[in-house]
Design a protein around this nucleic acid. Structure first.
Length: 834
RNA sequence: GCCGAAGUGGCGGAAUGGCAGACGCGACGGUCUCAAAAACCGUUGUCCGCAAGGGCAUGAGGGUUCGAGUCCCUCCUUCGGCACCA
């Protein structure tokens, strides 16, 4: 359990607040729930004048207590969804729980509590905590991914993908803990050792299930149908990693084809050796008896190294010669074949031709192991010598030592090399992607079982859709065997062939939890729909809700989850399940909120902030505002409890200006016209600023504007009783409604208006009322501000220029000199260059 | 290491290439009080100056521009991701 020490920075001492948030919030939350004012209507009941708006925030993982990070992820989207509602949209804002995964299983092993119990206890607690947020979640749509009525459809998606050729089996390595005899997650491997047993781990191949996400690589590079952050799109593009080049077929001396991928086919004549991944299937055949021991030693060593380390460009390259040779198809030369861990079996063909004169990695490798370097590209005016050059030359130049390419420029030689390869049957143009197919098998219990059956005669047969779900048995044992616990559950493991009823066994691996979160956005449209496998999990009558209009979630999901969900949608489209290309049209990735010590929050560090403490002390609204106010939402950063009392002060002052209101006597009475105009100007400028910030999710500056508005209303106390003041406080209640929903509702009631403020329209600003009468413009001389002039708004450039030049201060500094140039930025500034 | 971000007062941060520091925290001074807390009012980047005013200042160093926190190049630091944490 964690407690938060709040004694130092934010103890309010004796509370003398006039607005007592906690009971007020409780009252309104109960009323909203009773009235179901946030229930999203079915498409049949939509008002045709109101466009639909499906807002979604990434559902929480059922890790235990709700913490500040959840509020940070959910409050701003709630504010955005409420704003859309007030601006005339029919809004759905659902919530659910991502409930399968490793932590539940770890908790089960450590605390001897069943993952099912642990998870559902967490769901119950988190649901209660979420409700204190005062968000407009439509709880009638809640989904929990570990329940059979949900994972049945996760399995259904697997079967559909299988049927459409998008699921297949292949070998892939997993981390193996020899002491526990179990597969480990990357997270459970610390410095090459098992987190739990301390044993040295290594990678071991297992037969596993994959999805062909690479079939969609090209389409996933296209973001033309979404409005997503540039940084997220850049990360996805780089993750997919498109490379254009060629495959070239070398041959081993035994005549076996040994294919490489290269982006520089033009340098083929400079390939003086080859490097293949230690896991490459031809290693066995190429290795000569006298090299075998060393090759084996190197392969064992490689199995212990993580992929991040293997790809490090800092670390010195290592490798060993297999003793074998391959034939370069360009010139028939015998080149030695090496293995090295920097070549990955998962990228390209798992083999490269090494051109040390043109590639720095190959160059260092060649120098280290005394391999020949042959120059094939001479830089303009240069004469490199393979024996004396000190680094590779990768830029353009003139081809040499390259047979038919000699004398060509680098630009033309690439295409010519591919023509040559195709003419000689030695290769062809090829596009390769860094992205790999999606491995979805997990040798674990707490996940959706993969609905496949293996018959005695070796067939792989899908479970018929009508037999779904394949239920996860609740009485499985967690034996450390290296296989899924389901392997040892007789009732689960033993089944019969759907073809002929002969004995068969079930697939015992479960699915990656990212599968659950790849289609949940569809399920919210019809969370309880089940009319059989033909119709699938989405009620055709509810499809009008899709796709998601505004999605949000942590930047840490920029690549994996957000690529998988796009892949699922494109595959679902091609399978006729949905009729659009992208799952989420607009996306916002928030930053990560850290503990007050600027470290990631974790129970072990003891820096976890529990929202409940604040909610009980100040109410949810103050906490909502504090989270939005502290920094731009996409930045994240350390939580500062010091923000809270300041925001509480704002809430109290906001309440005070509304509470002070009195009935409007006779319009604006005899109040000074200038003061009335100034107040109305502030009101309409605030509507403009807040509306703009709502559109861009600029919540921190939005609240700053609201604070200025409240300060202005406080100072305009003399105008209480005027129509202008009444307009001001009503506007305040409306503008604050999305951010501080309870406070706004209480204000709205205090003003004598009809329930509910959340069913009102967003106010509009009048540009004429918002316009400033006079503006102050800085006058710069050579870029330094030397004077300021006050002019009427809309003053033309010629007048601005004349006014600026006529200023005594400017005259004095210029001392009679004629300015070389005068730059006027309309309504902004004058710069005199002297 | 690779990919993506961020770096501005004592602190969180604001700023369509156009007055750097909005808004808030903290600090200081004041009002109220026997006193304190709370609340309210005021001051608050830094240096020089009695003042008027001036100099310096947005991680470091260069560049483009009449003008750079903002654009370009090089570097440093911190954070997120790197395919079985989610």
């Amino acid at each position: 359990m964690t407690t938060t020490d709040m004694t130092t920075t934010d103890t309010p001492g004796e509370r003398t607040d006039r607005y007592d948030a906690v009971p007020v919030e409780q009252k309104w939350r109960e009323r909203w729930e009773r009235d179901e004012i946030y229930r999203a209507p079915d498409p049949a009941d939509w008002d045709p004048k109101k466009p639909k708006w499906y807002a979604l925030t990434m559902f929480p993982y059922t890790s235990g207590d709700l913490h500040i990070g959840h509020w940070y992820a959910m409050v701003p989207p709630d504010v955005g969804a409420r704003y859309r509602r007030m601006t005339g949209h029919t809004v759905m804002f659902p919530i659910g729980f991502d409930a399968f995964g490793l932590p539940a299983e770890e908790a089960a092993i450590k605390r001897n509590i069943h993952p099912h119990t642990w998870t559902l206890n967490n769901v119950a607690r988190m649901r209660g905590q979420l409700k204190t947020m005062g968000a407009m979640f439509d709880w009638s749509r809640e989904v929990v991914t570990c329940l059979p009525d949900y994972y049945k459809w996760t399995q259904w998606f697997f079967l559909r993908l299988y049927k459409h050729g998008l699921a297949y089996r292949a070998k892939a390595p997993v981390w193996w803990d020899p002491a526990a005899q179990t597969v480990l997650a990357n997270e459970q491997v610390i410095d090459g050792r098992s987190e739990r047993t301390g044993a040295e781990v290594y990678r071991r191949d297992l037969e596993q299930w994959f999805f062909r996400i690479t079939n969609y690589a090209e389409e996933l590079l296209d973001f033309s149908k979404v409005d997503w952050p540039e940084r997220t799109k850049a990360m996805q593009r780089n993750w997919i990693g498109k490379s254009t080049g060629a495959t070239i077929v070398f041959r081993t001396e035994a005549g076996e084809p040994l294919e490489v991928f290269t982006t520089r086919p033009d340098t083929l004549w400079g390939a003086t050796f080859m490097v293949i991944a230690p896991e490459h299937p031809l290693v066995e055949q190429l290795t000569t008896p006298e090299r075998r021991a060393e090759v084996e030693r190197y392969r064992t060593q490689t199995a212990k190294v993580s992929e991040v380390d293997r790809q490090s460009t800092e670390k010195e390259k290592t490798g060993v010669w297999t003793g074998g040779y391959a034939i370069n198809p360009a010139n028939g030369e015998r080149v030695p074949v090496w293995i090295a861990d920097y070549v990955l079996v998962t990228y390209g063909t798992g083999a490269i031709m090494a051109v040390p004169s043109g590639d720095q990695r190959d160059f260092l490798f060649a120098r280290k192991y005394g391999l020949p370097v042959r120059v094939v590209v001479q830089p303009p005016g240069g004469h490199l010598d393979g024996d004396t050059m000190t680094e590779a030359y990768a830029d353009a130049g003139t081809m040499v030592n390259s047979g038919p390419l000699d004398g060509l420029t680098t630009e033309t030689s690439k295409a010519r090399a591919i023509e040559w390869l195709e003419a000689h049957g030695a290769g062809s143009a090829k596009i390769t992607y860094r992205m790999r197919d999606w491995l979805i098998s997990r040798q674990r219990y707490w996940g959706a079982p993969i609905p496949m059956i293996y018959t005695q005669d070796g067939q792989i047969v899908p479970v018929p859709e009508r037999d779904l779900p394949v239920l996860l048995p609740e009485d499985a044992q967690f034996r450390p065997t290296g296989e899924s616990p389901l392997r040892y559950h007789e009732g689960f493991y033993n089944t019969v062939s759907p073809i002929d009823g002969t004995p068969a066994r079930r697939e015992t691996d479960t699915m990656d939890v990212f599968m659950c979160s790849s289609w949940y956005q569809f399920r919210y449209a019809s969370p309880h729909f089940d009319m059989g496998p033909e119709l699938g999990p989405i009620d055709p009558a509810m499809k009008a809700w899709l796709p998601v209009d505004q999605y949000s979630g942590g930047i840490e999901h920029a690549v994996m989850h957000l690529l998988y969900v796009r892949f699922f949608t494109k595959a679902a489209r091609d399978m006729g399940i949905v009729d659009f290309d992208e799952p989420m049209i607009r996306l916002f990735n928030q930053g990560i909120i850290l503990g007050e010590d600027n470290e990631k929050m974790s129970k072990s560090r003891g820096n976890v902030i529990n929202p409940d403490d604040y909610v009980l002390k100040y109410g949810a609204d103050v906490y909502r505002l504090a989270l939005m106010f502290r920094s731009p939402w996409d930045m994240g950063g350390p939580w500062q409890s010091g923000t809270v009392p300041g925001v509480n002060r704002f809430v109290q002052r906001a309440w005070a200006v509304v509470d002070a209101v009195s009935p409007v006597s006779d319009g604006d009475g005899d109040a000074p016209a200038a003061e009335i105009a100034a107040l109305r100007r502030l009101t309409h400028q605030t509507i403009r600023a807040v509306s703009k910030d709502m559109e861009t999710f600029g919540f921190n500056t939005m609240i700053a504007s609201l604070m200025e508005f409240v300060n202005g209303l406080t100072k305009a106390h003399a105008l209480v009783g005027t129509a202008a003041y009444r307009e001001g406080v009503e506007t305040l209640a409306l503008l604050v409604a999305p951010s501080a929903p309870h406070l706004a509702e209480e204000m709205w009631a205090r003003l004598g208006n009809t329930y509910s403020v959340h069913q009102q329209s967003w106010p509009e600003w009048d540009p004429d009322l918002a316009r400033e009468a006079e503006i102050v413009i800085p006058v710069q001389i050579n870029g330094k501000v030397r004077d300021r002039i006050t002019v009427a708004a809309g003053t033309d450039d010629a007048t601005l220029r004349a006014t600026a030049l006529a200023s005594p201060r400017v005259q004095e500094i210029l001392g009679g000199r004629e300015p070389k140039k005068v730059i006027i930025v309309p309504e902004r500034m004058v710069n005199i260059v002297g």
